[in-house]
């Protein structure tokens, strides 16, 4: 597991360095305060991570669980495309601005869960006549089948879509931070962009891209941990 994580993370190091370099160059070209800009962007990232990571984890696991069960999962997957994170954030902000932390989390987790549910449901349907039938033919059934085979397969499929889920969640996190007034890289980005502060905005964006790349790599390692077929890539 550790080796897998290391390999995945090392593989994205050049991309991360490239992003940092690009951010530094743009910030330096834009104004004299580029060191501060980079520092501010880096300092704001943990807050964004604290928003994105739980939402992704929660969304993927719950979505996969619902997806392999069918029923509610299929409904969730079906309406998924209609509710991108930024739209949910706006709706929550306008209607029930009571518990912003939980609401922000929900706005990010729901789309991730919908995608996971779709992928997991599809994986289950695809496995029904192959892997699952073969396992039933060997006398496996009931909860053993569900926990030992169906759920891992669904989870693996959901994690296969993690790359786009991470990108989507980070994008939506900008809207959540901006609408709920939370501090973080997204908030920093929006304010810098509104103020026309090129260096700061670009540094914040590069920071979020780096976060996305890193989270995708970790997600890929986790996927490989669950599914040996994903270890090769």
């Amino acid at each position: 597991m550790l080796r897998l994580v290391l390999r995945r993370v090392l593989a994205v190091v050049p991309a991360l360095l490239g992003l940092a370099l690009a951010a530094a160059v743009v910030a330096a070209l834009a104004g004299p305060g580029w060191v501060e800009a980079l520092g501010a962007a880096l300092a704001a990232l943990p807050a964004t991570l604290a928003l994105v990571l739980p939402a992704l984890a929660l969304g993927t696991v719950l979505g996969a669980l619902l997806g392999v069960m069918g029923g509610a999962g299929a409904v969730l997957g079906g309406v998924g495309p209609a509710m991108p994170g930024f739209l949910l954030a706006a709706v929550f902000a306008a209607t029930l601005a009571k518990a912003p932390v939980l609401l922000g989390l929900a706005a990010l987790a729901l789309p991730a869960a919908a995608q996971a549910a779709t992928l997991a449901g599809r994986a289950r349907a695809g496995a029904e006549d192959t892997v699952l039938l073969a396992a039933r033919g060997r006398g496996m059934d009931g909860s053993a089948l569900l926990w030992r085979l169906v759920l891992p397969l669904g989870l693996s499929a959901a994690m296969g879509g993690l790359r786009s889920a991470v990108a989507g969640t980070v994008t939506a996190a900008v809207a959540v931070e901006s609408l709920f007034g939370r501090t973080g890289a997204g908030q920093l980005f929006v304010e810098a962009a509104r103020a026309g502060d090129t260096g700061m905005a670009f540094a914040a964006l590069a920071g979020m891209c780096g976060l996305t790349v890193l989270l995708s790599a970790l997600g890929g390692a986790l996927h490989g941990f669950i599914d040996p077929r994903a270890r090769m890539a």
Binding site: T130, V131, L133, A134, A135, L149, P152, L153, S156, I226, D227, P228, R229
Partner: peptide
């Protein structure tokens, strides 16, 4: 028919 095994 496909002789499928548990892929995981």
């Amino acid at each position: 028919q496909d002789g499928a095994l548990d892929p995981l």
